[in-house]
């Protein structure tokens, strides 16, 4: 069973006539770590929204871990997302008024499954992840807003990984970091993803990062809508 299978996907934003995504076929194996690139405005974020179940395609199927997302009602899609997907964004990933540790624990308050899979217990798991991601213990109780961007991204990575979600979706998580820190961060991310055996989609417009990944996919290879066709 594949981690992700997209067939005949067609998506158009409301109040727009032309489709934004038209993907006949796209598949990812379990544990695969994929680099997805494309210029900005090519529909990367839209695709991630569809994978997360916050938007629904007009046509086609998205099967995530064997589950057809269209079969789920919106509430169940929210649950599915919480249970199986860890998200990482560009920056401002964290709730600024929560401590670093509490930010990491957030997925466990939204998903019973991830709480249960955070072994031996969520707090210990969170601390272990933060340690593995090289965040010193003095920073754990600090409000997220007081951390540096690099530290914040590592906390965000720990949050995405806690409770061993099968899927990790990272959207330009390194764009706010300098080159050296980008390398370090990607290495950390790949290592931790491999450790839990998760499937990773890493989205970026910066093709120089592609070398670290099992496979590289250009969005315009799989999407029949060409960039520039949509605003």
């Amino acid at each position: 069973m594949s981690a992700l299978r997209i067939t005949d996907l067609l998506f158009r934003w409301p109040r727009q006539s032309a489709p934004c995504l038209d993907i006949p076929r796209f598949e990812l194996a379990r544990g695969e770590r994929v680099f997805l690139h494309g210029p900005s405005g090519s529909g990367k974020s839209t695709l991630l929204g569809l994978l997360g179940g916050v938007a629904v395609p007009q046509a086609g199927r998205i099967e995530l871990l064997g589950q057809d997302l269209a079969q789920l009602r919106s509430h169940a899609r929210d649950r599915f997302r919480a249970d199986h997907i860890g998200f990482l964004f560009q920056q401002f990933n964290l709730l600024p008024w929560l401590s670093a540790l509490d930010n990491v624990l957030l997925p466990c308050t939204f998903s019973a499954r991830r709480k249960q899979r955070a072994e031996p217990d969520p707090r210990t798991a969170a601390k272990r992840l933060l340690t593995q991601l090289d965040l010193v213990a003095e920073l754990w109780p600090q409000p997220a807003a007081e951390l540096s961007v690099g530290q914040q991204q590592r906390v965000a990575a720990a949050r995405a990984l806690i409770g061993q979600p099968e899927f990790l979706i990272a959207d330009e998580p390194t764009s706010a970091l300098d080159t050296e820190r980008q390398q370090i961060f990607i290495d950390l991310l790949l290592r931790e993803t491999a450790a839990v055996g998760a499937t990773l989609i890493f989205v970026s417009h910066d093709r120089r990062l592609a070398a670290h990944f099992d496979r590289t996919v250009a969005l315009d290879e799989i999407n029949r809508v060409k960039p520039g066709a949509v605003s």
Partner: peptide, 16 residues
């Protein structure tokens, strides 16, 4: 808005 998007990614629905 960021905060809401983060909560959304964590599994919060529009209703939440």
């Amino acid at each position: 808005r960021r905060e809401l998007a983060i909560l959304r990614a964590l599994g919060a629905g529009p209703r939440d």
